[in-house]
């Protein structure tokens, strides 16, 4: 049996209106502890306004071997990109 605390993935929202972004992972005894650790490890320099933590074991990831089947077919479907539309300047960042 491992003596390590469980692994949590940490997501930080940098400012209001933006999405939470994955910033890294850490060990903690439970979710509340993970929030505190994330605060201390990842927001020391005012990086965020909100923290999410997720047990790493709860994340289901795609397999690197499936990369070809999953992602390559999108390569030649340029018409799926919205580059054919004129976007008014007023819209701002999308």
């Amino acid at each position: 049996m491992s003596n390590e605390w469980p692994l949590y993935e940490v997501f930080i929202r940098g400012q209001h209106g933006l999405s939470h972004r994955h910033v890294g992972s850490l060990h903690a005894s439970d979710a509340e502890h993970a929030i505190q650790n994330a605060r201390d490890v990842y927001t020391r320099r005012k990086e965020g306004v909100s923290i999410w933590v997720v047990p790493a074991a709860q994340i289901t990831a795609s397999s690197p071997e499936d990369k070809g089947a999953l992602f390559d077919p999108a390569d030649d479907k340029v018409y799926r990109h919205p580059t054919f539309f004129d976007i008014p300047d007023d819209v701002g960042a999308m």
Binding site: L26, H27, N37, D40, R44
Partner: peptide
């Protein structure tokens, strides 16, 4: 005893 505690105490 743990990296996370180390940083927290230093903070």
């Amino acid at each position: 005893p743990a990296l996370e505690e180390d940083i927290a105490m230093a903070n």
